[in-house]
Design a binder for these strands. Structure first.
Length: 503
RNA sequence: GGGGCUGUAGCUCAGUGGUAGAGCAUCUGCCUUUUAAGCAGAGGGUCGAUGGUUCGAGCCCAUCCAGCCUCACCA
């Protein structure tokens, strides 16, 4: 239903324009400049007692309900802390103001000054002594109605539930569905605690390019753009990794970045084309050290967001108390399938996949086969926080070879509730090895793998100056937020998720 | 990309081939402690779009658009 054009006034909107004009004729400023707010709804309600001396408050918010009864009326206004009832009586406001009040609508934003009292039916309310319009709402707001039934349960009527509209018109979603705001407050707390945790350890927050002449650091297809003045093609970054490690070469002992990455791929419950990633690199550390940091950081973050070591997701309790379980990828597969893959050659791995009914592309190499078996038979069983360690080398072109295990790299991924939450490795700092890995990636690309990494000559050159041993970490902020808030879709933790444009 | 479901008033929805409906919202009147306020009345629709079947389509068929779920692909 197209309602985007102001010219396209339906009856409800036309009516509001008329009211707006009528207010102007009465000399009312329909859009105010400020209001001396000195109270908030939640605090006023919480602090009220019937014994305390009468208190006068100045409060402002959006009108959410209106009950006009001739010469006296009730309304609820909502500010950022919640709703509170306003009582407007002609004899107290004066006829002029009261008539203006009667011209107001649900959605209008008003400022009210008055004393706090309890109504006959028991609701703490503000008895208005003055009232001003701060913003006229010219477009009808689909406000749901609420009722408390005999059992004390809150019943909501006409709730604004259309998912598409909620994502497309997020401001309405925020006004009409209070839990939405809670999710984004939690997201903010999460990021704040993460930043604080990293800052407390002396790591430096930096900013690296979003527009990159070569993209790298992950296996993904990029968005392509063009710079006019230089007349060159640029890519939106798919990861921060290679730039951050350049900074470790440059002498920073620890750097991190929290920023958007962009991947030109499909969208679903777990993927949005732009998403927020935190990446951290710390010199002289390895992936084992990084596991301990991740445990501490996540339990600290969950404490900040949920006030305990527990998060509840889909009725499941997730326990963030360190230490988290550690399990090699091979052992996790053995535990959940009974198949011991360690030491098997490609034919042996394929046979195991067949026994487990895991389908493979013909082109899959040993590492890919192991990864497929893990993804299909293990991943979704990892509910409590579990570090899966030691990945096949061919899947990890930026990770350092395992110090004792042939064919593996020192890498871990943290799984919680069946989802990858963190990815980390001992970073590859040998430029000769790195060059070989890039060469292999280039071979894959030539064979048509458009997600294989590009050969980054400048990065190799930087490594050749010498990079200390380094531990690196990436955490998807959106997925972590989903986990800690129990959200089922990534769109519920992104304020303005990517949507197909309305036609 | 495959399969399933959905799209009707501002919102939430009903409507199985015969004159488009309900509640809330809106408008008019009454109403000075109401709370899904109430009472009386009124207005409001390209039934997602296009084409077809039919004497007749919101309903049946086809195509398209959009959304959700699911599988596949993908970190």
């Amino acid at each position: 239903m197209e309602q985007g054009h102001t010219e396209d006034l339906n009856d409800l909107m036309r009516r509001r324009r008329e009211e707006y004009n009528e207010l102007l004729e009465r000399g009312v400023t329909a859009f105010g400049y400020d209001y001396p707010v000195d109270a908030e709804a939640a605090e006023v309600l919480a602090s009220f007692t019937d014994e305390a001396p009468q208190r006068t408050v100045a409060i402002a918010g959006r009108i959410m309900t209106m009950r006009r009864m001739g010469k006296a009326s009730f309304a609820h206004i909502m500010d950022h802390t919640g709703k509170i009832q306003i009582y407007a009586k002609r004899d107290d406001l004066g006829e002029e103001i009261y008539d203006i009040f009667k011209l107001l609508d649900i959605g209008d934003i008003i400022g009210v000054t008055g004393y706090v009292f309890r109504t006959r039916t028991g609701e703490v309310s503000v008895h208005a002594q003055s009232l001003v319009l701060l913003a006229k709402s010219l477009r009808p707001l689909p406000v749901p109605k609420e009722k408390t039934d005999e059992q004390g349960n809150k019943v909501v009527f006409d709730q604004f539930t259309d998912k598409e509209l909620r994502y497309r018109k997020r401001p309405l979603d925020l006004i009409l569905n209070p839990s939405v705001k809670e999710t984004f407050v939690k997201r903010s707390q999460l990021i704040r605690r993460m930043r604080q945790f990293l800052d407390d350890r002396g790591y430096i927050e930096v900013e690296t390019p979003v527009l990159q002449p070569l993209y790298g650091g992950a296996a993904a297809r990029p968005f392509v753009t063009h710079h006019n003045a230089l007349d060159i093609q640029l890519y939106l970054r798919i990861a921060d990794e290679l730039y951050l490690k350049r900074l470790i070469v440059g002498g920073f002992h620890g750097v991190y970045e929290i920023s958007k990455d962009f991947r030109n791929e499909g969208m679903d419950r777990n993927h949005n084309p732009e998403f927020t990633m935190m990446e951290l690199y710390v010199a002289y550390k390895d992936y084992r050290w990084m596991m301990e940091l991740v445990e501490e950081m996540l339990s600290s973050i969950n404490q900040a967001v949920n006030g305990s070591n527990i998060a509840v997701v889909g009725g499941q309790e997730i326990d963030f108390t360190p230490p988290f379980r550690r399990l090699t990828m091979f052992d996790s597969i053995a535990e959940h399938t009974g198949e011991q893959l360690r030491g098997l050659d490609e034919a042996g791995l394929r046979a195991a996949a067949r026994r487990l009914d895991v389908h493979l592309e013909d082109s899959a190499g040993p590492g890919k086969i192991i990864d497929e078996i893990f993804s299909e038979r293990v991943e979704d069983k990892l509910i409590q926080p579990t570090f899966i360690t030691d990945y096949p080398l061919e899947l990890s072109p930026l990770a350092k070879k395992h110090r004792t295990e042939e064919g593996l790299v020192e890498r871990f991924e943290l799984y919680i509730n069946g989802q990858e939450i963190a990815n980390a490795f001992s970073e590859l700092n040998d430029p000769i090895d790195q060059k070989e890995r890039f060469t292999e990636q280039a071979r894959l690309r030539a064979r048509g793998d458009d997600e294989a990494m590009t050969f980054d000559e400048d990065y190799i050159e930087t490594l050749e100056y010498g990079m200390p041993p380094t531990a690196g970490l990436g955490i998807g902020i959106d997925r972590l937020t989903m986990l800690l808030t129990g959200a089922e879709s990534i769109r519920d933790v992104i304020l303005f998720p990517t949507m197909r444009p309305e036609k």
